[in-house]
Nucleic acid binder design. Structure first.
Lengths: 201, 201
DNA sequence: CCAGATATGTAGTGTTCACTACAGATGTGG
DNA sequence: CCACATCTGTAGTGAACACTACATATCTGG
């Protein structure tokens, strides 16, 4: 039994192009025509490879989350909770204004609210964001155990806070905020984490 | 010359219903069929009164911003910059989880990313958010002049920061965060403003 | 009571959407 | 070289979309 005609396009490169379209226009705003043109393929190839539009989004999110997860490992490798927050938020400021990508964050731009038939898209994005929150929370739990964060601090609340600021910065970036403006936000935000840190005597 | 047949529905009540649909599904996710059903009218009445879908959104945003502006006046009436931030963020936590409305904030849920033909919807929302940022900034400028905020503080950055947190909380609310979770975020966030406040001796 | 003006309900309009049938192309195993 | 399997391009499919033509209804001014 033969193995059939081989695929003529690179699935990962095509995903990168699809990611950019979703990033810029959101899930509902992105059309199959735009996606296929950006990916350099025709609709049947897209459907054979990814199932349907939502399957393509999930594949793009997987790829995005994977790259992001690697970066988050670098972030939580910082020495203190304060440095984790700073590295995270300053990095977010830079990434979300990187001209190589659309402004903002795919996990936000992808679709915060969706119409009938796409209700689970926002959930899908939220689940990916929650992964990052979990990474931060675990790191802050450790920081508290190490005495880096005050005994009165709440690692889960801190992680949720840092993520909330990240998301807010993403929305601002997508509506035109420049890198310097986002860095200022990050700089202020870090001070809340500092306030939860044990005094360095 | 006669004045014609009078309108049979209340435009403001209809707007409230339309607002809720946009809030829940976003601009692109909301269909004319859903909007007219919620408003209790037929398409010709909608188009005669609001022009088109985007006109309806703008009218809903006007109404939303007006109510919000009144509330913001209460917020900036707080005694100190820290209290302004606390009143704002705690109020946001409550409002965005008020079961009387869809979760989150219309100025975010309305549409962060849109497809071809609706590119200015995100700008429209951003402009409304900017109004709130301006109100906060003016208040923080005053706080700095009064010596409430440190001379080294940056009122514009602080205002942008508080708005970023608000937006981030809105996204979290729309993806299921409960009131207590948002209040914790607000509580942490306020500490950054506290850190910019002059020592109360 | 009539003429002009505006609102309403019914029933569509053309367009765009996500998705696919089908035929031909290109590979593998025997 | 042939049977089989998978991919690719062309050209559509029905459904859903924003929006509207039109006849009718309800008002005001004279």
């Amino acid at each position: 039994m033969g193995m059939g005609r081989p695929r003529e396009f690179d699935a990962e490169m095509a995903l990168d192009q699809a990611m950019e379209v979703f990033w810029r226009h959101g899930y509902e705003g992105a059309t199959i025509a735009q996606l296929t043109e950006a990916m350099g393929i025709n609709p049947p190839s897209l459907y054979a490879c990814f199932g349907n539009k939502e399957g393509l989004l999930k594949a793009a999110l997987d790829r995005y989350s994977k790259l992001r997860g690697v970066w988050m490992e670098e972030v939580v490798a910082a020495a203190t909770a304060r440095d984790v927050a700073e590295r995270m938020l300053m990095g977010i400021a830079d990434k979300q204004t990187d001209p190589a990508n659309p402004p903002g964050c795919l996990l936000v731009q992808g679709g915060i609210a969706c119409g009938t038939g796409s209700e689970n898209v926002p959930f899908e994005l939220a689940a990916r964001r929650a992964q990052n929150e979990d990474q931060l929370r675990d790191r802050f739990i450790r920081a508290k155990a190490e005495g880096d964060l005050k005994p009165s601090s709440d690692p889960a609340a801190l992680a949720r806070y840092v993520l909330a600021v990240s998301v807010g910065m993403g929305v601002m970036a997508s509506s035109g905020a420049d890198r310097e403006a986002l860095r200022q936000v990050a700089s202020v935000a870090v001070q809340a984490v500092e306030a939860q840190s044990a005094d360095r005597t």
